[in-house]
Nucleic acid binder design. Sequence first.
DNA 1: GCCTGCAACAAACGATTGTTTGACGGCCGA
DNA 2: TCGGCCGTCAAACAATCGTTTGTTGCAGGC
Lengths: 222, 222
Amino acid sequence: MLKRSFEHVRQPIKMTPHPNNVGTTKERILSAAEVLFARRGFDGASLRQLTAAAGVNLAAVNYHFGSKDKLIEQVFRRRLDALNARRLDALSRVIGTDNTTLEDVLDAYIRPALELSHDDNGALFMRVLARAFAEHDDTLRHFLSENYGHVMRQFTAEFARLLPQLSKPELYWRIDLVTGALTHAMSGFGMIQRKSGVSESVHLEQTAQHLIRFAVAGLSHP
Amino acid sequence: MLKRSFEHVRQPIKMTPHPNNVGTTKERILSAAEVLFARRGFDGASLRQLTAAAGVNLAAVNYHFGSKDKLIEQVFRRRLDALNARRLDALSRVIGTDNTTLEDVLDAYIRPALELSHDDNGALFMRVLARAFAEHDDTLRHFLSENYGHVMRQFTAEFARLLPQLSKPELYWRIDLVTGALTHAMSGFGMIQRKSGVSESVHLEQTAQHLIRFAVAGLSHP
DNA sequence: GCCTGCAACAAACGATTGTTTGACGGCCGA
DNA sequence: TCGGCCGTCAAACAATCGTTTGTTGCAGGC
């Protein structure tokens, strides 16, 4: 029997009143939203908690963003724009040569995501993203596809070039499973947690190495 | 720009009024809860939507379960008890012999989960589970660990026996990543969708094959 | 000096939330 | 036949939700 049920998921939580006493009102709202959406979900985090945590007035969200839903969209855009720009930048530096390896492309795919998940509140955003994936929502699917689908297509094309022996469906399957492993690792739910004696940058490097070797094996096995 | 924002995630939805006109009130509530929690999340699904879908009175949830949170817990228990019983049963049939293969153990681990995700409303429960994972909640973590941790430990021990060359941390990493791929595949968000011409059972078999071969490669690479 | 536009604020809006209440009716054992 | 439990029901509860309102202070342009 659970001593405490799942109730706390939707219970009010304690927060330091003004973790963000710097930056513009919009930025403070975005940062506070990222934290609270990660902790409580889109429905679970109320605008009152959110604006209190940001140290701004309740009406500021509707004033600056129009609605709570528009705010959610902006939280996505702010992080995903940066993530995908870095992914494409990293990819452009490793392709086009004859000796491009699978590890290179996977590194360009994985490392920007891992770095995002290790800086600042980026890890929290990864949980927001994992939540959104779990929502399994068609509108989100379209949003991601329309705005960031070209990134995925570019990586897929490169994987196809490096793995010519795989049929299209087979390749898609394997990329899908790699993405699942990556998402899971970044959301940080699994057994693996950073050891107390290990620095943040070392842990990032270890994670990247494990992921890349795992992905290489999963993608290129006969 | 999104034509429609993420708003619909929290908008009222249309449902057939009484999809479950059979079974006891408790069972009808549990089934309806599974469907609605998967579609809208724990916060997004209100007791009024839920009881209306089940065709029961609003107060029935609090009467039979005590609270909404207790109901959530029961939704978990009903499915996870069955899943883990089948996992342990499948595992017990493949271990203990000298010629147990990695494929056998992975099959015992993956197939019950996939079969659950393909029968009845089981696929919806998988989305509930994926959501819960994304919630990244400590109470949920403890609940899963206390109630079903022994299953995971048994599989881990078997993996360790079959992969003696791997250090403990290395093994945990790889199992973690396999779990991520499995969860992702079952939540059904990825690119791979069942083709219209493929029957449900064939698709299950294909998914199992892809997952097992991917997992074998990821677990046992040098 | 006056006016306009922006940003922030307290206060209130109607709607919806989970939960509780008390009454009603049918069933079963005594 | 009576009495008591059990499941169901409409109705109401206080609390909280996202959003809107009207007002205030403070800039910079004319």
